[in-house]
Amino acid sequence: MKTAVIQTLHPDPSKTNKKIALVKYEQIKTALLSILANGQLTHTDLMEALYQNVKDTFEGGVQWYGETVKLDLEARKMIERTSDKPQQYRLVQKTT
């Protein structure tokens, strides 16, 4: 049986991102969005929170998958970087 994959996007259109297993993508995406639902975080804090969140259930490199999915979520305008120093990540506010 073939594993479903997703072609992830990159916020820089000149770069191509990775194809990863859809189930891993969904697990990391869900974790990242739920972490950021509690407020914005620096990159270091976000990756640490992600690791703590999935380390017991995730097969593979949490940091690598976290970075790949984070870039994809940025490209899809679901999360964004702030202009703060240090830069932080936050959920994009949906306008209705």
Rank of each mutant, 00 (worst) to 15 (best):
M1N: 08
M1Q: 06
V5A: 12
V5D: 05
Q7K: 14
T8P: 15
L9A: 15
H10K: 06
H10P: 07
H10I: 00
P11G: 03
P11K: 00
S14L: 08
S14W: 11
K15W: 09
K15A: 06
T16I: 15
T16H: 15
N17F: 01
K18I: 04
I20Y: 09
L22P: 02
L22K: 11
V23E: 14
K24Q: 11
K24H: 02
K24P: 12
Y25F: 10
E26K: 15
Q27Y: 05
Q27E: 08
Q27L: 14
K29C: 14
T30E: 05
T30C: 03
A31H: 03
L32W: 05
L32R: 03
L32I: 10
L33C: 09
L33I: 06
S34I: 08
S34D: 13
I35N: 05
I35R: 05
L36S: 00
N38T: 08
N38S: 15
G39M: 02
Q40H: 07
L41T: 01
L41D: 04
H43E: 14
D45R: 12
L46I: 02
M47E: 04
M47K: 05
E48P: 02
E48D: 13
A49W: 00
A49H: 02
L50D: 04
L50S: 05
L50K: 08
Y51T: 09
N53D: 15
N53V: 02
V54P: 00
K55R: 10
D56F: 05
D56N: 15
D56A: 09
G60T: 00
G60I: 01
G61F: 03
V62C: 01
V62K: 02
V62P: 01
Q63T: 11
W64F: 13
W64E: 12
W64S: 13
G66Q: 10
T68C: 12
V69M: 09
K70T: 04
L71P: 07
L71A: 04
L71Q: 10
D72S: 10
D72A: 03
D72I: 06
D72Y: 02
L73E: 08
E74L: 05
A75W: 00
K77V: 07
K77T: 12
I79M: 02
E80H: 09
R81P: 04
S83L: 13
S83D: 14
D84F: 09
K85D: 11
P86T: 07
Q87T: 14
Q87M: 09
Q87S: 09
Q87A: 13
Q88K: 15
Q88V: 00
Q88M: 09
L91W: 07
L91F: 03
V92W: 03
Q93T: 14
Q93S: 11
K94A: 15
K94P: 15
K94N: 15
T95M: 13
T96D: 15
